[in-house]
């Protein structure tokens, strides 16, 4: 029995990847939940919005790399994020102006807006593939590891190494900063308060003189920030591929619904619930159990509950359980 090594192995393969993935999902789910709270529909184009913002950031990153600009140990992509956000915001505002505003004025039922967002999804997907192609792209540079296996062994003398990739650390730090800024904005500024008022009760908000078009514009700007940052972080941590971003839609929606659609706090909690279950259930627990259990009890197999490809099944099962037993989500979101 070796608790310390077991804990290190657990952090290495479950805790740290799940925290990083949870941060990425939480940022994505925040975008979905904001659109749901303010515009009142489930935006199927969110995954492709992330892909588009990330694509702009990647192109700028390549440009900067070509010019010889670098951030030293940090990835150059961080410098490119503002450009990505700007590109994404332009696209979203243009889409709102050309597509969504028409339906908002008509006050159509939400499901029509969902179908409209399907059309938008096709267009974004096509745009991204047209510009950057469907293949996977890597754009990370800078230091690869915050702490590599050798450093950790020398530091602690444990046999099990703890590896922290710099992208994981950057993900967590960025996500904390972004979420703190978002909550400050929503709770402290006048615009943020008007957004929450609009989300809580549209008619009352209109009566008190809140300009709905302004609220919608600010929402799309926030969504552009969240989607691009989430997308760039995911791309740095794993890899950028348009189809993968489209597939992220499922865990992101699962996170938003599990937390309670329309509740920002719920989106974050949901993101971590989904990430930890996905990683935990698809991880082969043999290593950790070998440290924990006495020798005769050591497992023969991998002790992997489900193959990695079933990670969507995990988000789905959690989603179904939550929907069956607590349809408004953990944090009591809207259920209109």
């Amino acid at each position: 029995m070796d608790l310390l090594n077991a804990f290190v192995a657990l952090s290495n393969f479950v805790l740290i990847p799940a925290i990083a993935y949870g941060c990425q999902l939480a940022l994505g789910a925040l975008g979905v939940t904001l659109v749901y709270g303010i515009l009142r529909f489930s935006n199927f184009a969110h995954g492709d919005t992330m892909a588009f913002g990330t694509m702009v950031a990647i192109l700028v990153t390549w440009g900067l790399q070509g010019l010889g600009v670098s951030l030293g140990p940090l990835p150059t992509a961080l410098l490119a994020i503002p450009f990505g956000i700007a590109g994404c915001a332009l696209l979203l505002l243009a889409t709102d102006r050309v597509v969504f505003r028409f339906y908002r004025a008509q006050k159509v039922v939400p499901v029509i807006l969902v179908i409209v967002s399907m059309g938008v999804m096709f267009v974004y997907n096509g745009l991204t593939r047209l510009v950057i192609g469907p293949d996977s792209r890597t754009f990370g540079d800078g230091a690869r590891y915050l702490m590599n296996a050798r450093q950790f062994r020398e530091l602690t003398g444990l046999s099990e190494p703890l590896v922290i990739r710099s992208t994981q650390a950057i993900t967590v730090v960025t996500a904390v900063v972004v979420v703190a800024a978002l909550f400050w904005f929503l709770n402290r500024t006048r615009t943020g308060k008007s957004m929450r008022a609009y989300s809580d009760n549209e008619d009352l908000a209109l009566l008190s003189g809140i300009d709905p078009e302004r609220v919608v514009r600010v929402t799309w700007l926030l969504v552009a920030c969240l989607a691009t940052i989430a997308g760039v972080l995911y791309g740095l941590d794993k890899t950028f591929m348009p189809f993968t971003y489209f597939q992220l839609l499922l865990p992101i929606f699962a996170a938003a619904i599990v937390g309670g659609l329309g509740s920002p706090l719920g989106a974050i909690a949901g993101g971590f619930v989904i990430a930890f279950s996905e990683v935990g259930i698809t991880y082969a627990w043999k290593k950790v159990l070998t440290y924990l259990l006495p020798e005769p009890l050591e497992p023969d197999g991998l002790v992997q509950l489900l193959a990695t490809d079933y990670k969507f099944a995990v988000s789905f099962m959690i989603l179904v359980v939550v929907l069956l037993f607590r349809p408004t989500g953990l944090f009591r979101g809207k259920s209109v």
């Binding site: 529909f41 489930s42 939400p110 499901v111 969902v114 597939q247 839609l249 499922l250 929606f253 699962a254 619904i257 079933y310 969507f312 099944a313 988000s315 789905f316 989603l319 179904v320 929907l323 349809p327």
Partner: peptide
């Protein structure tokens, strides 16, 4: 309706 959509999207992936 949107929950049904997400649920069916999920089952297809499964």
């Amino acid at each position: 309706s949107d929950y049904l959509a997400i649920a069916t999207l999920g089952i297809a992936e499964i």
